[in-house]
Design a protein around this nucleic acid. Structure first.
Length: 421
RNA sequence: GGAGAGGUGGCUGAGUGGCCGAAAGCGCCUGAUUCGAAAUCAGGUUUGGGCGCAAGUCCAACGUGGGUUCGACUCCCACCCUCUCCUCCA
């Protein structure tokens, strides 16, 4: 949620920011709704003040005609206030609806662009290995080694589900533990194991609701929502709290399964394990002071990169242009690893700075000494998404005989094995 | 799932219709005392919003949402959550 006061005080700045975003946004409607709400509020508050005054008088007055007269006045006021209250509630709900649907404002450093074709590759890291054979995609490798079972996955759960088996399951487990150890031991993140089902408010806090409910699974009976990413429960850990400024920055890492409806065109990305309704992810989440958030974004990105560096998988860093920024993000950088088998760059991490957008929705503030409580800035990024990292390992480290070499960093997590299959 | 108890400020905890945005204690902040500290004493210490250059002032909030009333922390209803016991399970 953006700061309504910013819109009131510097409407041009806000309008220009949305123009850079290329998002059609009805700011005039918001401004009008805001003005109307404040008018109603003023009127209602004046009446309430009057009513409070009369009620106090009644409390002090001795029984008699004067007291009865005051009561009648109170009744009249009450009726007027009730009429206003209905209009007020409607105005408030209307403004809220408009505000919750407004995307975040892009950071000035974000390059302007219309869509993903105008994202900028910032740099490429690592050198792509040369193969003296034609590298195979992971669906062929996985099937041949009997470590990914696509057919049975579809049998038990339908399309976009698969089963990891034997070394496939173990390799994923090794990657998870390796990533958690790296971030907790080397990067100073505190590990969290959160619930995978959350209340609706949490999704509003992170910006998934009300706008993006179509991509979420939920249990209708209890109104539990399945998390699409650990970002949701972990960010909401501190919802409605005022944190001690001395404790910032707070860094958390969480491994969870993620659930997404992914109502995309049939036929796209259907092969392999690149995109499914359920996938595992190690997620990094930070709560920081506003002044530091862009620096913290750089650090977050670097923490995620360290996973790929340690695994010795080549990758590139891509800066999202304004047109490809997600709804809640103020700035976003992706990490894409090179998958030689499918012959494409695969997004394994998306590192975002949300500014106070989520903090405002979830009311996460911090306070220092006598200063007024301020909203924190929140950031998060994958560190990393498992299925695609698994693809990266399988395809990068494949050998001519179809077996897979184990990256050095991973060997301690696989019982010392140097080759799988 | 069944029975009971309960949700008040940073914490403990009082408050059963107006004098309560809320006693008291703890914690914290400022000042006095002290070479300094402890102890002691005095004062201060919730959040959000409207109006205002500001001092300030008004409105709202005692789990949440409704209701009764001129007036609700207090009475009524529903829901959520916590605790205890039983049941059930990993």
């Amino acid at each position: 949620m953006i700061d309504i006061r910013l819109l009131r005080e510097k409407p041009d700045e806000v309008r220009q920011a949305y123009e850079r975003l290329g998002a059609p946004v009805d700011l005039a409607g918001v401004t009008a709704a805001d003005a109307r709400l404040r008018d109603l509020k003023n009127e209602s508050q004046t009446l309430q003040a009057e009513q409070n005054r009369i009620s106090k008088e009644i409390g002090r007055a001795a029984p008699g005609p004067a007291r009865e007269e005051a009561k009648a006045q109170g009744t009249a006021l009450k009726e007027r206030i009730e009429q206003l209250a209905a209009a007020l509630a409607a105005a408030e709900a209307g403004l809220d609806e408009l505000l919750l649907d407004l995307p975040n404002l892009p950071h000035p450093s974000v390059p302007v662009g219309k869509d993903e074709t105008e994202n900028q590759v910032v740099r490429e890291e690592g050198t792509r290995r040369q193969y003296d054979f034609a590298p195979k995609p992971h669906w062929d490798l996985g099937t041949a080694l009997d470590i990914i079972d696509f057919e049975r996955g579809v049998k038990i759960s339908g399309s976009r589900f698969y089963v990891l088996k034997s070394w496939g399951a173990r390799l994923q487990r090794a990657l998870i533990t390796f990533m958690l150890d790296l971030h907790t031991e080397k990067h100073g993140y505190v590990e969290i194991y959160p619930p995978y089902m959350v209340r609706r408010e949490c999704l509003v806090g992170t910006g998934n609701l009300p706008k993006f409910g179509a991509n979420l699974y939920r249990d209708a009976e209890e109104d539990f929502w399945f998390i699409p990413t650990a970002e949701v429960p972990v960010t909401n850990l501190y919802r409605d709290e005022i944190l001690d400024g001395a404790k910032l920055p707070i860094r958390h890492v969480a491994f969870t399964a993620c659930f997404r409806r992914e109502q995309m065109a049939a036929g796209r990305d259907t092969r392999g394990i690149k995109r499914g309704h359920q996938f595992d992810k190690v997620e990094l989440v930070k709560f920081v002071r506003p002044e530091t958030s862009m620096d913290e974004l750089t650090a977050l990105l670097s923490d995620a990169e360290d996973v790929l560096k340690a695994l010795e998988i080549p990758y590139r860093v891509v800066q999202m242009c304004t047109g490809d920024l997600s709804f809640s993000a103020m700035a976003k950088l992706d990490l894409e690893l090179w998958a030689p088998g499918c012959n494409e760059w695969l997004e394994v991490s998306s590192c975002s700075n949300f500014g106070d957008f989520q903090a405002r929705r979830a009311r996460i503030r911090f306070k220092e000494g006598k200063d007024k409580a301020r909203f924190v800035h929140t950031l998060n990024g994958s560190g990393l998404a498992l299925p695609r990292t698994l693809i990266g390992v399988l395809e990068t480290y494949q050998r001519a005989d179809g077996r897979i070499d184990v990256p050095t960093a991973l060997r301690p997590y696989l019982g010392g094995a140097t080759t799988l299959g």
